[in-house]
Design a binder for these strands. Structure first.
Lengths: 336, 336
DNA sequence: ATGAAAGCGCTAACAC
DNA sequence: GTGTTAGCGCTTTCAT
């Protein structure tokens, strides 16, 4: 590798000191017009480009943010990440992705953070690969949370009203005439799942329907979990006539399995998903789902982080975005 | 932010010079056992952790690699990226993802590269956000290509035999009795698409079937492109009885559209995909597809890159992985 | 085996 | 407005 032009080269070429080069390039107004011109020309002529490692070191910023994502294979997160990344890029920031399922990365992340190679973090899950508890946050770069919750961390958080969204989905199923409504939940220890489950429970109670423990299946947001959940639920003595899933991916898995069992969706069974990933438009039938503004969740989270990076105080608490029940083909009135 | 323990602190604590600390930590064998012990204890006691920015600066390495990915929304790439990322992590490297569709990132990437903030790159597409032509490669960090091709770059490349894989898929359709076989291709300017198209053409020619230009539809690997392609092809005067798609995502889009048109897959129409993403097991019917070892493609590409980073010469040319036609439910003999 | 010191490329006082 | 200089935290000669 041929060595890259350095500031000294530019300084020599322009017949000024490196300090002047630095100023001319960073704070043009602090330098006379003719000098600025000389420097700029010299810079282009030698093909100078600042060494960001060093610059970061001096200025204590890296213009890189770290996104902790629970599962990069999940299409939902991919949409959110897009929102983060494009917003970040628009403001000159780069995005490092960290899959929080990978164990041996803890040290890497910590090193990045300690070495100030990341200016901030967006957390898409609460299962972090490092300790971020309240009392060590002073030593950590700014963080925001999106989609999931971690109240003990007292972070600015971007999300939808999961409880109400779920409530509305179940309410809609009940309106259609369903009485036996099951739920394929996310992991029991996720706050997200708890809110969605609460919405489900409250809607049933409001409708005077008793909660059946056996109607609650817990999955991990995978296709496979959805398929397994469906099998389990449909082999119950009193199988449900409708299933509410905590994610589209699980709903697609459930839909697939329903068909394998010879069920007609929505005539024999209604299925509702959550997220509104692109794929839901291409399933058969197209999936009724609780639409989250995935891209915006990422975008708003990044904007919140940018504010902090610009020195504004963190707004601890919720930034609520709108969700909407999108009625498509996977739901209908139950057979009478 | 509280300041982090530095090497000087350790040196003071251990009563040695910073040079000795550096050696004790980096080249333990160059230091006497008692000194090493003292230093190690001092390091733990002050909670020392090396500042990687500075270390990178000195050693001219960042332990970060950049992956250029054409479209991070594509589940196929996600699988490949997983292979890259886990392999990288296993060797102490971090992965920066660069979506090559984003325009304004060119400068960022170049800066990263010039500033040696990335030690190497894995290219998942040939449409690069910077100039990587042969004559500037001396100034660039090592690169490997995976999945796609760019012969003019003369890079080590990990891929499957796309031509033969396609050939076999078409051959299988012909064996089933299909005569009117269409193709939903990837973008015409991608080498990948050309190989797959060549396999399609050669298989038809071998079977004595004339090539119909109108049977070639070009998409962009999206669900939507698949759906549009299907509509276009099926509204031809002589619609095909089988369609070979250059990706699973397009195949799922096509499948969806076929059903919307009231077609029975596979009885009215056979569909074959390419990649074998997880989703193909959960479509209805499950998708017959050309299975690529996505994860391994990423893994092998990263291993190739690691070799170069360890100083071994690049093996320009192909590392060929195996593919396999996976017969599932979306293909059958045509109606007679 | 260890220390002193130079320097990586750049920025930020501090002078002039 | 511009140059001089002192570092940033670490590695690496070069002495000892």
């Amino acid at each position: 590798m041929i060595s890259i032009a350095t500031m000294k080269d530019v300084a020599q070429m322009a017949g000024v000191s490196t300090a002047t080069v630095s100023r001319a390039l960073m704070n043009p107004e602090k330098v006379s017009a003719p000098t600025r011109l000389k420097v700029e020309q010299a810079a282009t002529s030698v093909g100078y480009s600042p060494h960001s490692l060093v610059r970061n070191l001096k200025r204590n910023e890296s213009h890189t943010i770290l996104v902790i994502v629970p599962n990069i294979s999940d299409p939902f997160f991919v949409e959110v990440i897009k929102g983060i990344e494009e917003t970040a890029a628009g403001h000159g920031y780069l995005v490092l992705l960290g899959d929080s399922t990978q164990q041996n990365q803890e040290k890497s992340f910590l090193n990045l953070i300690l070495a100030k190679q990341v200016d901030g973090m967006v957390l898409l899950g609460s299962n972090l690969p490092f300790d971020a508890s309240k009392d060590v946050q002073k030593n950590l770069p700014p963080m925001v949370m999106a989609n999931e919750f971690a109240s003990e961390l007292e972070l600015p958080t971007v999300h939808i009203d999961n409880l109400t969204a779920s409530f509305n989905a179940i309410h809609y199923l009940h309106q259609l005439g369903h009485q036996r409504i099951a739920c394929i939940c996310g992991p029991e220890n996720m706050h997200l799942s708890q809110y969605r489950k609460q919405g489900y429970i409250q809607a049933l109670q409001r409708s005077g329907i008793a909660i059946e423990e056996s109607y609650l299946f817990y999955g991990d947001f995978s296709y496979e979990a959805g398929a397994k959940g469906l099998s389990a639920l449909m082999s119950l003595p009193q199988p449900p006539t409708a299933i509410f899933c905590h994610s589209d991916v699980m709903a697609i898995g459930a839909l697939s399995q329903a068909k394998k069992l010879g069920l007609n969706v929505p005539l024999d069974l209604s299925i509702i998903g959550f997220d509104n990933i692109t794929l839901t438009q291409y399933s058969d039938p197209p999936l009724t789902t609780v639409a989250q503004p995935c891209y915006q969740i990422g975008q708003q989270a990044m904007l919140l982080l940018l504010k902090q990076l610009q020195g504004q105080a963190a707004q601890i608490g919720s930034l609520l975005l709108e969700s909407e029940l999108l009625i498509r083909g996977s739901t209908a009135a139950p057979r009478s």
